[in-house]
Design a protein around this nucleic acid. Structure first.
Lengths: 233, 233
DNA sequence: GAACACATAATTGTATACAATACAAGAAGA
DNA sequence: TCTTCTTGTATTGTATACAATTATGTGTTC
């Protein structure tokens, strides 16, 4: 149950995939903020590999829209615009309710147990004052449901949407407590366990609408990181 | 209206993006079959660049699931399984009808004109006995509708699904004539022009169901390329 | 002090060299 | 003849070197 404290903590072989995963996790957990520059040399030294490998990782993350690469300018952690933020949540509202319905049809007892374990871990993270990790686990809950639905193509889409949601939350989150999710996730698990497809779909839809409306997506209320950074792009 | 005859026909600078685009087009148009090996040296020579650039292109295409990269084994044009084929069309049936509805709300006269031009080009390609190009244009029709709907996130998903559909069609297509599409696309354009959202959504849905059922997705009816190739993987 | 030009440093883009792995063919043995 | 091992070749994985571009800092001018 121990977890990596700093970015890497790679003990031995760092491949392109493991680096991408480590960075993705760090972004998920808000240990790296949107807009942060990701220099190739810097990362290469951290992970003890050459720029070649780092570049592959960054390109991979840029395809997931977690990282923004611009020619001759390097890579930054993406900072989604208001438009993108709306789009991501609208896409989730289109995909996830239907997926939750399928998951309700297919969920096995062991699936349910896994989901409950996720909720518990999320709880522990919140108690440990680790909101970043809680957020990551909360996202994992959604991707796990997509996996249960046994539609790996759609699950892949949802995975990227959840990842991008993490960036959006970092930029536009309004409410102070993330606890509002707890009940929603619990209720969803119950619906899945009962194979109540209708209920699962409805709960997922309202949960997402709730999340969407918990964002401060009014024009220009974006928290500007710094003047210099705002103008550099 | 001239088009590139062979794979590359790059006149000058070949960047990672242009190579990926050229390969993508070639796959779309069925000039490269699923399962074809894409050697790095080979492509590097064709496009007059180093393997570095080629690798970036291939990785990019592998994220779109057009190319299958396996560690130390290299890249091949993907050949989607039956399961994947079903998933792709199910995802399209989930995403595209709703998107067509949005497009019906937003379509401008110039959008309609563009779509009609696409249909005409598709027609010309069919007359010119170029079914590959017709298929590509047919896909472009769908991605164009997604673009009109002004939801670039979902449009991106649809784009990848359309691309993968091209591979699926190459493997599992049953009907002889692709002409069945002509009427469906025409009717859709009319619905979009009339801003008839209900009709657009319904037409898109039935069009996709039609496409899906036009595939021979019965177990094990896959056309095996060759024994050697079948065993090599 | 502000704006510009230029030189220098830092960073990314691309090519190449070398290492590691997989594939194929042939030799040795039963 | 078949199996298994060995060896050679081809291909991919990674590191490094160099080229191209961007960023930075300094001095100059107004």
């Amino acid at each position: 149950m121990t977890r990596t404290t700093l970015l890497p903590a790679m003990q031995n072989a760092a491949t392109s995939d493991t680096i991408a995963q480590a960075l993705s996790l760090a972004i998920h957990e808000h240990r790296i903020a949107p807009g942060t520059k990701l220099g190739e040399d810097e990362l290469a030294e951290i992970y003890g590999v050459s720029r070649t490998v780092v570049r592959a990782s960054l390109q991979s993350l840029s395809h997931l829209k977690l990282v923004d690469i611009r020619r001759n300018k390097g890579a930054k952690v993406a900072s989604p615009s208001l438009t993108e933020a709306h789009e991501v949540f609208e896409a989730r509202e289109l995909l996830e309710p239907r997926t939750a319905r399928s998951a309700a049809k297919l969920a096995t007892p062991s699936d349910i147990a896994l989901l409950e374990r996720h909720i518990n871990e999320e709880h522990t993270a919140l108690d440990a004052a680790d909101p970043g990790r809680a957020l990551y686990l909360s996202g994992l809950f959604h991707t796990e449901i997509a996996r249960i639905a046994n539609q790996s193509t759609i699950a892949g889409f949802i995975e990227t949407l959840v990842a991008r949601s993490s960036l959006i939350i970092a930029l536009y989150w309004r409410r102070e407590s993330a606890l509002c999710e707890k009940h929603a996730h619990h209720a969803l698990v119950r619906a899945l366990a009962d194979h109540d497809e209708e209920q699962a779909e409805a709960l997922m839809r309202s949960h997402l609408v709730d999340l969407h409306s918990a964002l401060d997506l009014r024009e220009r209320n974006v928290r500007a990181p710094s003047l210099k950074e705002a103008l550099s792009q």
